[in-house]
Design a protein around this nucleic acid. Sequence first.
DNA 1: ACCTGAACACCGTTCAAGT
DNA 2: ACCTGAACACCGTTCAAGT
Lengths: 240, 240
Amino acid sequence: MAKKTATAASQEPKGAVRPRSRERRTVRQEAAVDAAFRLAAREGVTGLSMRRLAQELDVDVTALYRLFRDKDELLLALCERIIETELDAVGEVPEDEPWTDTLRRIAAVMWQSQSRFPAVTVLTFARTTGGPAERRMIELLLSCFTRSGLPPAEAVLYYRTFVDTALGHCASAASLSSLDPEAREKDDTTWTRVYARLPEGDYPVTHAHVTELSVIDHRTIYDTAVEAVLAAAARTAAGA
Amino acid sequence: MAKKTATAASQEPKGAVRPRSRERRTVRQEAAVDAAFRLAAREGVTGLSMRRLAQELDVDVTALYRLFRDKDELLLALCERIIETELDAVGEVPEDEPWTDTLRRIAAVMWQSQSRFPAVTVLTFARTTGGPAERRMIELLLSCFTRSGLPPAEAVLYYRTFVDTALGHCASAASLSSLDPEAREKDDTTWTRVYARLPEGDYPVTHAHVTELSVIDHRTIYDTAVEAVLAAAARTAAGA
DNA sequence: ACCTGAACACCGTTCAAGT
DNA sequence: ACCTGAACACCGTTCAAGT
């Protein structure tokens, strides 16, 4: 099955009839992806259905199935688009920028995507698209870790540890903010509702840390995790 | 709304009539949780529906809604059960065990849960149950970080960084293994299918790391992430 | 070459009616 | 006090039939 990516608007071999229709096809795919982002932002993870997306685009549901094989292919297209946006946000990497700083900027941009599009993040965080944006992102990330001086095996190990850690934390934040309001409320008042009232006798350590537990926010945790991975990579690089 | 947890079989005030029925209720809840684990293990994340669970238990769907307010409450009960099992697997913590070793054992046990029950992991990894097992787990984890010598704010910061990092990686592994077979196949052959064939010119760094990229496994990444967090915590503790 | 309508096999959840 | 049947408002996906 040939992959028809959005950026495949390359030069056409001959004749301008078939290409025209293929062009229109990718235009419609892009429009569908746009609409899906609007829908996901407005209605959340449960609102992002094929039927509702068709409604949003004012077409029949079956039209969507002519643009995407199934919902999974649509989700991967959304994921590609997010990575594309992230690459734009990162921009050019200055020659002399330390590798750790580049990675910090990428981590910050990933967090931004998560908070803008939690629904799409939740639905795709563990996936691989194989698309052009993902390829460029991998090239960029890997080049940071080779710049660090790590030998191939370790560069790859820390590259994966970095992305998976970042994506894992993003997914967990996104998953929390895509809960329906009542479950969300239940979840993030737990610290004050149950943990603040625990008997000191049974849970002495928790009891002693109640205030610290209730003030910590997810972004600080994310930064700490990212820094931990960068420090581990740097130490390994220095030792090699 | 009073929380009716499975372990709430405390002493009854007077009369043995109401307690009898409440007891039966928790017995049925436990049976439902057992069946849900069987179902999830057999049918995966899409198979774990209220209707199918009712079928598995040979009762009407509406009977389930008398045991659990909604599906979310059932999922939280499954999550509690997993934590319970994890606490059993960790067992007693020897007085003289280094705090990092305790945390390594907990991380290993969490990975085990993920690989045994990917469906439940995916559905609950970002949630808080507020239940008795979760409370004990938090007490255990926090006590490790205070044993390390970290002051309260940092102990809490690293405790959260540790759990969220571990859960994030577990969720990403679980999410991958709960994909339907064809999406799963598509996803984990990407490295050989697309990245192994990339033109060297456009993606020199990726091209140079193809073999390393294709052999790395998720468990090694998980261990690296966990060690990175432990090292960061240890360094902060030493500096304080 | 595209669109439409209708259907299939599912979901979570509720509720009136039975015993 | 419990159970049953039926319904409501949804899903993803397919397919014969139209133009």
